[in-house]
Design a protein around this nucleic acid. Structure first.
Lengths: 137, 137
DNA sequence: GCGGATTGCTTGCGTTTCGCAAGTAAAATG
DNA sequence: CATTTTACTTGCGAAACGCAAGCAATCCGC
């Protein structure tokens, strides 16, 4: 299973994004990098949804290939790899948050905490900025 | 090819959305309903990206099943079906717009008009509200 | 009112992707 | 030095995709 770049289908902006993260797993990986601050393969593998290791491997390669995630060996442990969001990846936070908000609004069994909905509705811009600046160091 | 509801993978809000529109086509169909004001199967079929008719059929069924789109026979022509966004579907506009903005920012060959980027950056809320209120009648 | 065109699909079928389980190499640990 | 941990890869059956063709119902022109 190889993370090859698909030909682009059109130069529609929506399409550009979907060709990178338009599937059931990629945004969940980004979610864990953003909201759970996961950094290692084994952590990402242990998501609630149970991603398979080959799928995770493929998605991380694709995210790296598209410059949303960086992949650096851990200097303290040569076995481990540290995955981090790049600026380009961090720029996707608004997308993640909007999807989460839509879901929280329309899913009767949502697991979204009320604090999220409240903070988002109170001041969306500040909520996002908070997450982003936390990620940048 | 049947639009069956997949079991939900977790009650993570992001996941709820992705289980509905986490693929390469669904959001493009919604894009055409929102930005091109398409209403008929044949119009949606003629997208730039060339969606296959069986895939389109499947996605419309799924969108209807999840209440994002309504499907009503055209009273003036019994052959034709009119597809419309519901409120739940319209609520996805911010998601579409955020993805488009991210793509416009990061795609060197983006086809996004400068007017979109400008309007979005100038006043996001007003830009979205404009689209939404146009859709509501 | 009859032939042809249009519309909204469905059906077959080969190809690609998914997803589970098992395996592996390299490095750390005891 | 044997065991464990980590980050993957490999095989393979199942599901989804995507192209082409087909089809029933309806409309349109004459």
């Amino acid at each position: 299973m190889i993370a090859k770049k698909a030909r682009r289908r059109s130069n529609c902006p929506l399409c550009f994004g979907l060709d990178i993260f338009g599937d059931k797993w990629t945004l969940l990986v980004l979610r864990d990098l953003v909201f759970q601050r996961k950094r290692h393969f084994r952590e990402l593998l242990a998501s609630d949804e149970g991603i398979a290791s080959n799928i995770l491997s493929d998605r991380l390669k694709r995210l790296e290939a598209h410059g949303l995630v960086s992949r650096i060996g851990d200097p303290d442990d040569a076995r481990q790899i540290v995955y981090r969001l790049t600026e380009k990846g961090i720029d996707l936070v608004p997308v993640l948050v909007e999807i989460a908000y839509w879901s929280a609004k329309h899913d009767p069994h949502t697991g979204a905490p009320k604090s999220f909905v409240k903070a988002f509705e109170r001041n969306r811009q500040a909520y996002i900025q908070d997450i982003v600046s936390n990620l940048k160091h």
